[in-house]
Each structure stands twice: as C-alpha cells, then as structure tokens.
Amino acid sequence: MSTLVYINSNNGLNKAALEVVTYSKNLGGNVTVIATGSSNQELLATLGQYGASKVIFEASVTADDAQQLTELIATVAQAENAATIVFSHDVVAKAIAPRLSVKLKAGLVSGAIEAPNADGSIKVNVFSGKAFGSVKVTSDKKIISLLPNSIQPSISGSNCSVEAFNGTLTTSKIKVISTKKPEGAIPLPEAELVVSAGRGLKGPENWGMVEDLAAALGAATACSRPVADIGWRPHHEHVGQTGVAIRPNLYIAAGISGAIQHLAGVNGSKVIVVINTDAEAPFFKAADYGIIGDAFEVLPKLTAAVKKFKAENH
C-alpha cells in the first residue's frame, strides 16, 4: 500500500504539513509527499523524519488553481501507484480534494479527526461538531483530509530524498489579481490556542483586551456570529455552525452566551474557559473552567497573569 500526501510549503513547513505526514506514516506502507510552493530541498528532506520516504516538489505550481493542482496530484498519484491520498483539511484541500475524488473515482473523507478504525472507517465531525460519524470508503482508492490539530506530529525517521516533478501541466485558468495576508496573524483553523469574544464586549473599540490576551498567549482571535455580522470583527473570525469549526487545545470565550450554533463550532476544543457575567449563561455547561465575572476586568488580569507566567517560565 502506498500513500501520497499533498502539502503546500509556500511559507515553509507548518504544523499541519507535519501532521498529515505523520498521519500517513501511521496508515502503514510507503509515504510519498507532493509539495508545491517551496523548492528548498534541505527543508523538504526533513519530512523524512515524520515518515516520508520521498518528496516530489513542483515550485512553479501555486495553490491558486484547483484544476491545475488536481492534475499535478493525479499524475503523481498514478506514477506512485498511490491507494490513499492525504490532505490537511484547509481551504486548498476543500478546492482540490473533491476534484481529485471525481478524477480518480476515489471516495473522499473530509475532516477526519482520527486514524482509521479497524474496519477501515474514519471518524469525522458531522452536524457541525454536534456529533461524530464514521465514514467508510467503498471505492478502491481513497482520499482523506485531516482536520488540523487532530493529531500530534511525531518524529520516527531521518531525512529522505527530494526530487523535482518532471512533467508538463496545463496553464492555470484562474488569474490572481491580488493577495492580502495580514502580517503575523495566526490562521484560526490551525491555531492551538484561541481567544474569542462576543457581544458582551459591547463594541469593536474594546477588542484591544482580546488582542492583548491573544498576543500574550500566542493565540489566534475569534468571535461569535453577531459580532462579525455587525462588522465589529472580520468574517473569517466567526466561529460556529455557520462559521469556522475549530478544535484548538484551548478556547477562551469572553462575553459569549454559548448558543447551540456557537457551541457546534467550538466544542471539539480540548479545554474551554468561559468568562461571563451571567452565571446562567449556557456556555458554562460546555466549559472546563468558568469565571463568573466582567470581561472588562477579567481579561486584563488574565493577560497580566499569562505574562507573569511566561516571564517566570522562560
């Protein structure tokens, strides 16, 4: 059995890339990586430590055109005789994996959160995180896209060989006009720590407290739906059933009531801290640690405590 892993190494190797290589290694069999973005062979070779036996790179292909990228991955999958293809369940995978599923007639499991069960079925979130389902692929080939932060990367070997992709591809049909990437911001879906706030913060001018805590922790920021709807925060921070579903190690929610639609997107978090003035707020039922108190007082105190802790422990 052979597994092909796609990674986008535009900005180096992120944790999600190491997660998918580790995951594929755990499936058993040979693991080949197809990487787009970087041509840094020294860096790509380190994927061998996480279980890859070979990395093929194609630096000229971007992640912009799903059609072109699908062609690249399908070509390599055929050449490597891959029975399974693994992605990290990010925005790129959401564009390519379904195309590839049709092209290769390979059943697609989106948003896997665990290694396959003994019967080959794979656990995924369903109903926006309100339940889990086990999906069985009935086709010969399969595609798995792994939800970020579902497994820990682990080192099991040494550097592997790296080679350039050798072949021609059609040109991209998607013309990129501009790209905006906020400096230094941690992408929410991959974040291990998240600080989130809701309507209890009263207005966008009060978000400094939230950002200060996030900066002290090295966390990403998120918000409830009404906060994004009113325009206090950007849409991509909206978490929940109709926003982003996340499963960080730590989710801190300040001034969020914990409506069922909000909980759906965050209850996969390993630890939840809730800060709310209302002891009856439904969020406390989903919390591990609760603080009944005013976010305007608690957030700065928590930020100070985190800074003190970091200063003492580093």
Partner: peptide, 16 residues
C-alpha cells in the same frame, strides 16, 4: 463512493 457506518455523540463534559 462512501457510506456512513455509525454515528456517536461527544462525551458529556464533566462539571465546570
């Protein structure tokens, strides 16, 4: 190409 075999509910959280 795929089928759902079983569903499960998340474990209840212990008290906060």
């Amino acid at each position: 190409l795929t089928t759902y075999t079983t569903y499960t509910m998340p474990n209840a959280k212990s008290a906060c």
